[in-house]
Measured scan of single mutants.
Amino acid sequence: MGFKLLSKLLVYLTASIMAIASPLAFSVDSSGEYPTVSEIPVGEVRLYQIADGVWSHIATQSFDGAVYPSNGLIVRDGDELLLIDTAWGAKNTAALLAEIEKQIGLPVTRAVSTHFHDDRVGGVDVLRAAGVATYASPSTRRLAEVEGNEIPTHSLEGLSSSGDAVRFGPVELFYPGAAHSTDNLIVYVPSASVLYGGCAIYELSRTSAGNVADADLAEWPTSIERIQQHYPEAQFVIPGHGLPGGLDLLKHTTNVVKAHTNRSVVE
């Protein structure tokens, strides 16, 4: 069995187990497998329904001669939608809004960016022009300005110390501490036991640490421990890039980060 097929099978099995364990909360999309990078042309966006009122959005972007996937989250909030992270750029984010209108038909009224990198804030200006209120932590807003990236308009308070959590509509926002970046936030959907790890969490097929220019490698494993301790009931975990899975993604990420750190020390 090929690795790609095995990865998709694991996603399907995880979703099936969740649907059985929580039949009222989960209505997993039966329309197909989780979209992969090879299936999404740059400039297009796919939506994948995880649970009743919960979707991931998947886009792709060219970077350094390669094409990478990027995940975000959409959560229903009454007759409105909360968006977590842009679709990595203005063109993708405009396509995301169009796809949401086509498939869901509810307005996106608020959006949260989970850290300051372009795959999370690139497209904020498109959201703002569409009347979406954009939010991020003060740290993310400051770092985005320093980096020359787009800056969300509103500040999220109460997320300055490791372990801080605040309720934001249908989700809980959690600051686990520094990891992929010093400002990275985690998003949890309690009604569906869905954990969105953003770039602080890796997919299972990833074996290298990737972009760690703004990471705190020493603190990252401790931050992941905080996530595990705060959300032990999480059933569906979405990484910032690639295929979702279960809580095993947290341990896998820790292993990859520690291996990278150990290699760096040896070198």
Rank of each mutant, 00 (worst) to 15 (best):
I20G: 07
L195F: 04
S223N: 03
V265M: 05
R76L: 10
D52N: 07
G72C: 01
Q229A: 14
E203W: 02
L10T: 09
W55C: 00
Y231W: 12
G163A: 08
G240K: 03
T134I: 05
H241Y: 04
A136N: 03
T14R: 08
G43K: 10
E80V: 14
I58M: 15
Y175A: 02
A192N: 10
Y68N: 10
A87I: 00
P23T: 08
R263T: 07
A133G: 09
L185D: 01
C199N: 00
L217M: 06
R120E: 04
D248R: 06
L96R: 01
S181E: 01
F116G: 10
A98V: 07
R226A: 11
I40H: 07
P239M: 00
A218M: 05
T254N: 15
F116I: 04
S264Q: 15
L24I: 10
G89C: 01
Y175G: 00
Q49R: 09
S38R: 08
S181C: 01
G123P: 03
R128G: 10
G177H: 01
F63Y: 06
V121C: 11
L250Y: 08
V11W: 10
S62D: 11
I17E: 05
T134G: 02
V108R: 02
K91E: 14
G158K: 13
L250I: 07
S70Q: 05
N71L: 01
S31D: 05
R120F: 02
K8R: 09
V171C: 03
P69E: 10
A95G: 11
N92C: 04
E219G: 10
G65V: 09
H230W: 14
V121A: 03
S31R: 11
F236K: 05
V67G: 09
S56L: 10
R141L: 14
V187L: 05
V126R: 12
I74G: 02
E33D: 08
S264N: 15
V108T: 14
P41D: 10
T254C: 13
I20Q: 10
L24V: 07
L173E: 02
M1A: 03
A192M: 10
T153L: 06
L243W: 07
P239D: 00
N262K: 06
R46H: 07
A87F: 00
E39R: 08
D164T: 15
V187F: 00
V124Q: 11
L5G: 07
D183Y: 03
K258G: 08
G246C: 04
H57P: 02
A25G: 10
I100W: 02
A179E: 03
V112A: 05
G123D: 04
E225K: 07
I50A: 11
V108I: 12
V189Q: 03
E172A: 04
N92I: 04
Y196G: 01
L249K: 01
P221I: 14
I50H: 15
A133C: 13
R110S: 06
D77P: 02
M18H: 07
E150G: 11
V212L: 09
Q229T: 06
G123T: 03
K91L: 13
F116D: 03
F63V: 10
F174W: 01
T114F: 02
S22L: 08
S30Q: 06
I151S: 12
T182M: 08
A59E: 14
R167I: 14
R120A: 14
R128E: 10
A209D: 08
L250F: 08
G131H: 06
V45W: 02
S162H: 09
G148P: 04
V171P: 00
V11Q: 10
Q49Y: 07
I84A: 10
I40W: 11
D64G: 09
M1Y: 04
K258M: 13
H252L: 03
K4C: 15
V256D: 03
R206N: 15
R141F: 04
Q61I: 13
A15L: 09
P138T: 15
A133F: 14
Y34M: 12
S205V: 14
E233H: 09
S56M: 15
I201C: 03
V67M: 09
G65M: 13
Q235P: 04
H252N: 15
L243S: 06
G131C: 04
S16L: 10
L185F: 03
E33F: 13
R263P: 13
G210I: 15
P152E: 02
A19S: 13
G240E: 03
S16V: 07
N211G: 11
G2H: 10
V146M: 11
P170F: 04
G123A: 03
Y175S: 02
L81Q: 01
S137H: 07
L73K: 01
L13W: 09
A192K: 10
T114L: 00
P23G: 09
F63Q: 05
I17G: 05
W55I: 02
G210Y: 07
L250W: 02
Y231K: 00
F26P: 07
P190T: 05
L5H: 13
T93N: 02
T254S: 11
A66L: 11
V146N: 08
G158V: 06
A192V: 07
Q235F: 04
S7C: 06
L250S: 01
Q235V: 06
T114Q: 00
A234S: 13
M18W: 06
L127V: 04
A215F: 05
I20S: 10
H115T: 00
A25T: 08
L97N: 00
W220T: 00
A200L: 10
P35V: 10
T109D: 14
D118M: 06
L173W: 00
G163H: 09
P23Q: 06
G65N: 07
Y175H: 05
S137P: 05
P221Y: 08
D118G: 11
A51V: 08
Q61W: 12
A209N: 09
I238N: 01
S160R: 14
L127F: 05
S16M: 05
H115K: 00
E219W: 05
G198Q: 04
K91M: 14
N262V: 09
A95C: 10
P190C: 04
G242L: 03
A259M: 11
H117N: 01
I186P: 00
I74T: 08
T182N: 13
K8P: 01
G123E: 03
T153M: 08
L5W: 13
R226L: 11
A215I: 09
L10E: 08
F3G: 07
L10F: 05
V54A: 10
L82H: 04
Y175T: 02
V45K: 03
F63K: 09
I20V: 09
G53A: 12
R76T: 08
S223E: 02
H57T: 06
V266T: 15
H180R: 02
E44G: 12
A209K: 14
V67N: 10
L83W: 01
S223Q: 03
S62C: 11
L82F: 08
G169M: 02
I50T: 09
K102C: 11
S191K: 07
A111Y: 09
A66W: 14
R206A: 08
L83K: 01
H117T: 00
E157K: 07
A234P: 15
H252Q: 05
T222I: 12
T153S: 09
H154P: 04
N92Q: 12
S56Y: 08
F63I: 12
Y231G: 00
S161F: 15
I227P: 02
G169E: 04
S161V: 14
